[in-house]
Simulated scan of single mutants.
Amino acid sequence: MDTAVELLSGSEGDELFSMRKLASELGTDSSSLYRHFRNRTELMLAIVDRVLVQAMHGYRRQGPWRARLVDLTLRSWDAYAALPQLAKDPSHYPGSGPGSQLVIEETLQALSDARVPEELIPEWYHRLMTLSVSLISTHAARQSSGPSEQKRRLEAFRVITLGADPADYPALAHYARRIEPVGFTRESFLAAVELVLDAVPARQERS
């Protein structure tokens, strides 16, 4: 798993990561890997779970519910930020082991400790996870593209913003030099998470 993570982090796209490439790095052939993983998808699920286990290392269920949820989401962000190829579409690889179980368990426990009505906890769990996965995927897709592609995207964005006619697009023309293409920093990711947490129907003190 450690070798798989290293290979994936160094690749230019997870489509370049293969059972054959991993086997070669390990000094064996791919048939030996198939004794442990039935296919590439099963291997990717195991890698995701390995990443989540590492991300949750040292986590303790202590402190206010909100701080714990922020900690959980930032741990996921940081883990996938180091592996943008894996994070480009994590919905394809949701994980299938103790790492995934731990993240789900702690998210549900935090919502329960917030005294969110029991019937609403699954719904709010889904909202938090959907937001996190979506933003992490967006960031990863941008980071995993090459410098030339990123430059082309930025240039195209500048054309439609800086070139906007104030008569037709007054707000766009006004803010053109201060807005950026879609993408997220750790700070903007946290700000989006905080907005959702503000809406959580908690009955427990937020402080």
Results as ranks from 00 to 15, higher is better:
residue 99 G to F: 01
residue 100 S to G: 12
residue 82 A to L: 14
residue 100 S to K: 06
residue 74 L to D: 07
residue 16 L to Y: 11
residue 188 S to C: 06
residue 109 Q to I: 07
residue 2 D to Q: 07
residue 123 E to A: 09
residue 178 R to H: 07
residue 206 R to W: 02
residue 6 E to R: 03
residue 97 G to Q: 08
residue 46 A to V: 10
residue 190 L to P: 05
residue 165 D to K: 08
residue 12 E to K: 07
residue 162 L to F: 02
residue 113 D to I: 06
residue 121 I to S: 00
residue 21 K to C: 04
residue 100 S to F: 08
residue 99 G to H: 00
residue 98 P to L: 10
residue 25 E to M: 11
residue 93 Y to K: 08
residue 129 M to E: 12
residue 155 E to S: 09
residue 207 S to C: 09
residue 184 F to G: 01
residue 40 R to C: 01
residue 148 S to H: 01
residue 84 P to F: 07
residue 48 V to E: 13
residue 112 S to M: 12
residue 197 L to V: 11
residue 61 R to K: 11
residue 114 A to S: 10
residue 92 H to C: 08
residue 98 P to E: 05
residue 197 L to N: 01
residue 26 L to R: 15
residue 48 V to L: 01
residue 59 Y to T: 01
residue 123 E to V: 08
residue 60 R to S: 04
residue 179 I to K: 03
residue 189 F to H: 04
residue 5 V to H: 06
residue 49 D to G: 04
residue 182 V to P: 00
residue 129 M to R: 15
residue 28 T to L: 14
residue 200 V to F: 10
residue 39 N to Y: 02
residue 30 S to M: 13
residue 171 A to N: 14
residue 66 R to H: 04
residue 33 L to M: 12
residue 10 G to T: 10
residue 199 A to Y: 06
residue 98 P to Y: 08
residue 53 V to M: 09
residue 58 G to M: 07
residue 22 L to Q: 09
residue 147 P to L: 02
residue 90 P to V: 10
residue 37 F to W: 15
residue 108 L to F: 05
residue 82 A to T: 13
residue 126 H to N: 11
residue 30 S to R: 06
residue 55 A to T: 05
residue 27 G to L: 14
residue 96 S to M: 14
residue 186 R to H: 11
residue 87 A to L: 00
residue 87 A to W: 00
residue 49 D to F: 00
residue 38 R to Y: 09
residue 96 S to A: 10
residue 17 F to N: 05
residue 166 P to H: 04
residue 47 I to G: 06
residue 116 V to T: 14
residue 108 L to R: 12
residue 127 R to L: 13
residue 166 P to C: 10
residue 150 Q to C: 02
residue 81 A to Y: 07
residue 63 G to F: 06
residue 195 L to N: 15
residue 187 E to Y: 01
residue 29 D to H: 13
residue 102 L to W: 09
residue 191 A to N: 06
residue 185 T to K: 08
residue 127 R to T: 02
residue 51 V to E: 02
residue 154 L to R: 06
residue 105 E to F: 10
residue 28 T to E: 10
residue 64 P to E: 13
residue 171 A to S: 05
residue 115 R to E: 13
residue 86 L to V: 03
residue 143 Q to I: 08
residue 119 E to M: 13
residue 6 E to G: 09
residue 207 S to I: 08
residue 189 F to E: 00
residue 64 P to V: 12
residue 173 A to F: 05
residue 45 L to V: 13
residue 38 R to P: 05
residue 193 V to W: 04
residue 33 L to N: 06
residue 43 L to S: 04
residue 21 K to S: 13
residue 85 Q to C: 14
residue 179 I to H: 04
residue 97 G to M: 12
residue 94 P to C: 12
residue 122 P to M: 01
residue 67 A to H: 14
residue 68 R to Y: 02
residue 187 E to L: 08
residue 169 Y to G: 04
residue 180 E to R: 15
residue 75 R to M: 07
residue 63 G to M: 09
residue 168 D to P: 00
residue 56 M to E: 05
residue 21 K to R: 13
residue 138 T to H: 06
residue 32 S to H: 11
residue 118 E to F: 10
residue 115 R to N: 10
residue 112 S to Q: 15
residue 59 Y to W: 12
residue 142 R to N: 05
residue 168 D to W: 01
residue 10 G to E: 11
residue 22 L to A: 08
residue 186 R to T: 15
residue 38 R to T: 14
